[in-house]
Design a protein around this nucleic acid. Structure first.
Lengths: 351, 351
DNA sequence: TTGTATGCGTTATCAG
DNA sequence: CTGATAACGCATACAA
């Protein structure tokens, strides 16, 4: 067995300089190219670097430059499973950041005084932050603004002009779902929102979905019912069961609650209702989820890839020029017709 | 409207010292408590800190201490959706790290000379690394060892005694699936593995699943078929279609390919086969996936939470004492009987 | 073309 | 109990 070349202990720029017989600054310049270095010297230095495997110490560089080449990504507490849309955001932000040679520090932060969040934003550990799951009134936004740390929201507060963000137009999308269902003849439609706590806490998408639902139902002259539902399949079951029991004429659901959808499917099928023959569902959801459900879900597919990448782009711009005006991106992807909506059919045939 | 206190520009310990009329070191000690500071002085310092919102600069601290209080998490390239088991690992590692007051730097690294991976490991940006999706021969493991950077694998190489890891015992689990199916009278069973590329690249779980399958089938005197399948639903469809077409007597599938499972369901149902009456499936998968499928999947539920948390624990220990012996955790969770396995029934009744 | 000196913000060490 | 100083590794202004 050949002996592995020993451990590459951390080598400093001083070590390289000594071994190359030049000054530290010369090594630095040879690497950065910010001033001319003779070919001869450059080669000698490079040889030593290759041999010892030198890599600049990130902490020292950050201390000197005041930049970390790292962005923070604040996600909902990872303890409970993220929704597919949320996962899509995380993946695309990480990917986009990697493409821009930025590292990503992930902070699972829910509560008010979150240690992880504080660490990330207050020690200058990152050059900027992408913030997920923003509330209409959000302490973290206030905090970031006060810190003077560049940030971009995936989602927006009640005063959206005061920050950069990308967002999904839940208002418009839920309205479209309603119109689509109404066009199919549905007269009793329910909106299944996210959890009571989330909506009560001023979760933007929840409120905007409500608004869109109320408006569209009014426009069509329909009266609907709105319910909140926790973000999991089991809650989806009980929510759908309750809805069926308490709203006799109900023939369709519009929803932004991805996690509850598999549960709704189950409850419907257990009630002997076939989708979409007896009952229709239209949603705002991740394409992955929509396609893998049985039957495939008619939904407005959230373009998480695009939004995440755009968020990173906006953040990079804010970092480069913190004084630049805020920028926004609001998307309303079209509904992809799959197999969960069909013409209304009375649930209990009148005798 | 009250005027917000202006931006908290980054304040250094020197600034605090000056305003408090003490030396920098005194501020440091007042904060760390590593040497006695008079109550009087401590109060004055604290008052200034509270007023200015001082937080130690992480880069300076890291430079001085040689520790970053950050761990790296190397995940598969996020471009393609991670499997539910992988997502479970990511979430639990992030959560466990946050509980231990560690930040997590996520690196989506697939290829050999990945820039993101290099940045994370070679600039001393992290104190240690959790490595996912390890190959039997893995360059990244070699690299980390050479760097002398503590690391823990979720998964293991061909020489598992040379590193710390946690892993799922795919060998045993697939064998259990086979025995379970054989007990139900199935005589023709297929193993649906991960993608050809992954297995060819020496992906451990793929190889170990093969081994367990081959052994168990031999023990039961059965002959099976093994196929590779890409990690997505569409591939699951075509894979199952091909299997049904080419292996007439086939009545059951054992699989470790989570992402393909929804596709297999679809193909089976399109072929007019009802699960589990006409065809059985047993798998190793995430509980979330298993429970939300229709019908719910009989599977060995991977305890990703436990494994991820344990990986972080092992990593913390390795960071604390790099000379300590390597430690390992191999888990083989029991099969949760749900609704996709039943007694074998010939697919094409003999005439 | 290259070398010297300084400072980024911390904390440890040595003095007082 | 507290102050001054050095050092971590790097980048850069200044000097030669």
């Amino acid at each position: 067995m050949s002996v592995e070349s020993g451990e590459e202990r951390q080598v400093s720029i001083g070590e390289i300089a000594r071994r190359s017989g030049v000054a530290r600054s010369t090594v630095s310049y040879a690497l950065s190219g910010k001033r001319a270095v003779s070919e001869e010297t450059r080669r000698r230095i490079q040889a030593v670097i290759d041999e010892l495997g030198y890599r600049p110490n990130a902490a020292a560089k950050a201390l000197k430059e005041g930049r970390t080449h790292t962005i923070g990504l604040v996600i909902p507490p990872a303890s409970q499973r993220l929704t597919d849309v949320q996962l899509g955001f995380v993946a695309s932000v990480i990917d986009a950041a990697a493409s821009a040679d930025l590292d990503v520090l992930v902070s699972p932060s829910g509560g008010e005084h979150d240690r992880s969040f504080e660490r990330v934003v207050s020690g200058r550990r990152v050059d900027g932050v992408v913030l997920m799951e923003i509330r209409l009134e959000d302490d973290r936004v206030t905090r970031l603004r006060k810190m003077g740390l560049p940030f971009v929201g995936i989602g927006r507060t009640a005063r959206p002009e005061e920050m950069s963000w990308v967002d999904i137009d839940y208002d418009t999308l839920i309205a479209r779902c309603v119109h689509h269902l109404a066009d199919l003849g549905h007269r009793h439609i329910a909106l299944v929102n996210r959890s009571t706590e989330l909506v009560a806490a001023g979760y933007g998408p929840g409120h905007r979905a409500q608004a869109g639902f109320t408006r569209a139902m009014a426009e069509r002259g329909l009266r609907g019912v709105q319910v909140c539902c926790a973000d999991d399949a089991q809650s989806g079951v009980s929510c759908a069961e309750r809805l069926l029991a308490e709203t006799p004429g109900l023939t369709a659901i519009a929803t932004i609650n991805e996690a509850a959808i598999p549960g709704m499917y189950r409850a419907l099928s257990q009630a002997g209702l076939q989708i979409p023959r007896d009952f229709s569902i239209a949603a705002v959801a991740a394409r992955y989820l929509a396609e893998n459900l049985h039957p495939p879900l008619t939904a407005s597919d959230v373009p998480a890839d695009e939004l995440g990448a755009h968020a990173v782009e906006l953040l990079i711009q804010r970092i480069a020029d913190p004084a630049a005006p805020y920028r926004h991106l609001l998307v309303a992807p079209p509904i992809s017709l799959r197999e969960t909506t069909a013409p209304a059919r009375p649930r209990e045939p009148l005798t």
